[in-house]
Nucleic acid binder design. Structure first.
Lengths: 214, 214
DNA sequence: CGAAACTTTGCACGCTCTGCAAGATCGCCT
DNA sequence: AGGCGATCTTGCAGAGCGTGCAAAGTTTCG
């Protein structure tokens, strides 16, 4: 969503569709940010975007989806990047590397994403929805990881790594939005992944004399 | 749900309520396992449990909640146990220890939980819901962890640790159910937590000569 | 037994979301 | 230009979810 980058389709029709889509998404975010999730109806959102409420559902399968947005594009890109990382690099680091591009894009659309995360935090009912958006990507990710580390199908590692890094990334996103972008997202993701790689030691407790905290 | 342990309330009324609750939950699971999530209506579930559909909503706020169940009780117990673990033990290990009791209870109700996980896996729309069920517990957990490790409020560690261990536990649960309980849940959770503590190294890649993998 | 507390139920209602069948708009081709 | 096919929008009807309210029905306790 809100992707102005690939103007591959320059047709009038496609531009219109894109405009309607973002109009709906931003109207939804604005209204929900102001009034709360269940004080806003699809009809109101549609009216704000000057379309019928039936048209809303031609663009988004549910009200929540308009708020959480189109992670599909980012997800696909992420999985593609992951497959490209040379197989020598460990899976955890490979995931972090593949995330770089996605992070950069989110940083560019900073305002949109922070508003989105803000809305999610203020309307916890959306949190499951946010997670669901990443779930599909995680499905394909499990296979890529399994192929990369070469383990039998019943091994738990790929699923564990995928779910755990997903959780870490989400945590970083929310923290990013909570701090209104005071620190770049990439920093927060790095911090989270470093903590993971270190085995989640308690902070501020001199865990290992060979490692200096921060 | 299905908790026979605390028969603190021996009144007729309370027994009836408990029976109705489990009747609804099990009917929901059975029907959805057989026909799929959106081929089953609340009305059908209620009919199977011999109550009106209005009563259904007196017990569960939504259809999904009847399937995912009452994590609230387990959650509360878990948080209580976590607070009891001596503060010297690192947070990650403390969480694993506090989980023991919950795991044991789930192992006892093995069939119910495995059916539940089965339904969740076959109806991916429920997965986010399952996560959300743990989310409330995670909220309180964040505070306990923060107090335990004594970090400033803006530190990311408590939230990270909470979300990550939550993801790890869920992964173990699903794996447990996928294998129909071939290995005890406690084993799978141990394996996941050990992997976390080791920093999620690629398996089968001789990560650190000082550590022997099981 | 009878009053108080609680539970179940029916009813009405608003909202989400889905087909279906016009009607409007756009792209393209002659 | 004109017109045809493809695509998009819209209204309508309807199933299902979820909630508030008030009337029954049941349990508890004095």
């Amino acid at each position: 969503m809100t992707l102005d980058s690939p103007p591959a389709d320059t047709g009038l029709r496609d531009r219109k569709k894109r405009r309607t889509r973002t109009a709906l998404a931003t109207a939804a975010l604005r209204l929900v940010a102001e009034h709360g999730l269940d004080q806003v109806t699809v009809e109101e959102i549609s009216a704000a975007a000057d379309v019928s409420s039936r048209t809303f559902f031609n663009y988004f399968p549910s009200k929540d989806d308009a708020l959480v947005g189109d992670q599909a594009v980012l997800n696909a890109r992420f999985v593609a990047r992951l497959a490209e990382v040379p197989p020598e690099v460990p899976a955890l680091a490979a995931i972090r590397a593949a995330l770089a591009e996605v992070i950069e894009e989110m940083q560019e659309d900073r305002e949109l994403w922070q508003l989105r995360m803000d809305v999610v935090m203020r309307n916890p009912a959306l949190l499951p929805r946010l997670i669901a958006a990443g779930a599909e990507a995680e499905r394909s990710m499990i296979d890529v990881v399994a192929a990369r580390v070469g383990v039998p199908g019943d091994h738990g590692f790929p699923a564990l790594l995928t779910n755990v890094t997903g959780a870490a990334f989400r945590t970083a996103m929310l923290r990013w939005a909570a701090a209104a972008g005071a620190r770049p997202l990439a920093d927060l993701v790095d911090e989270a992944f470093d903590t993971l790689a270190a085995g989640l030691p308690d902070p501020g407790r001199a865990p290992d004399p060979s490692r200096t905290p921060s």
